[in-house]
Amino acid sequence: MLLPRAIPLRERELPGAGLTQKQAVIMSPLVSIENVDMRYGGPGGTLAVSGLNLKIERGEFVAVVGPSGCGKSTLMKLTTGLHIPQGGTVIVANQEVTKPVSIVGMAFQNPTMLPWRTTLENILLPLEIVERHRHRLRANKKEYVAKAEALLETVGLKGFGDKFPWQLSGGMQQRANLCRALIHEPELLMLDEPFGALDAFTREELWCVIRDLHASQDVTIVLVTHDLRESVFLADKVVVMSARPGRVISEHVVPFARPRQLDILYKPEFNDMVQALQGEIATARAAA
């Protein structure tokens, strides 16, 4: 299931085909969050994030970590336009976010498969919604189904398309959930603790699936996680957030070369980095 990483990250072809390397450099980041404040429940409500600044480049894999309740999920919702901030600006793909942006795929800890649809129908659901695909779906059904089946195969669910979600285990549902987030080829994949409820073996297996996905496709990934090993293993950059109201307190570039194998988890450099992050979050929690 290992896909060789064909081209190094920085040189990969950009989604806007035909762009030269130079134009790519001067292009702005895919996501740019500037000085954002977000308060829930009107004035006097909970200030979830405050003075939040974050830039995410195209093709980058960013992991967001921080104390519980610090506003990580809020960050995801701000980026996807599910919430509009009271202060500051969120810019995605050169456009200020004022409504849900349609270039994203999302997956949460809870797989939220619809129980009345088969796994395959669940995976095809985004295509019935996304403007670009919904009119083509009926005529090109075969092509889309083939694509969904190919995705299922990549996550190790070959032949499970016609099972209902409740006939799958939790880990298998989570894999299907990933397929659903990917079917419409989003430029930006937002994962909010997608592996939180899984056992260690399944989790590591899915880490590899995500890693290979990122290596083989032009996708920018933002992963919220509580698992620091996960963040260091997968990401190009780990972003640490402060306790509520959340803001970014530091960004760490992960120095390990790709493709990374699971045995990196037992290397001292890896553990040093995990421990440094651990310490930082502990301090951030204590400061609250």
């Binding site: 996807t80 336009g81 999302m106 949460f108 939220t112 996304v130």
Partner: peptide, 14 residues
């Protein structure tokens, strides 16, 4: 409706 389900769909422009 689970808020997550709604979020997933709204993020797709539903």
């Amino acid at each position: 409706i689970e808020p997550e389900t709604e979020d997933v769909l709204r993020a797709l422009g539903a």
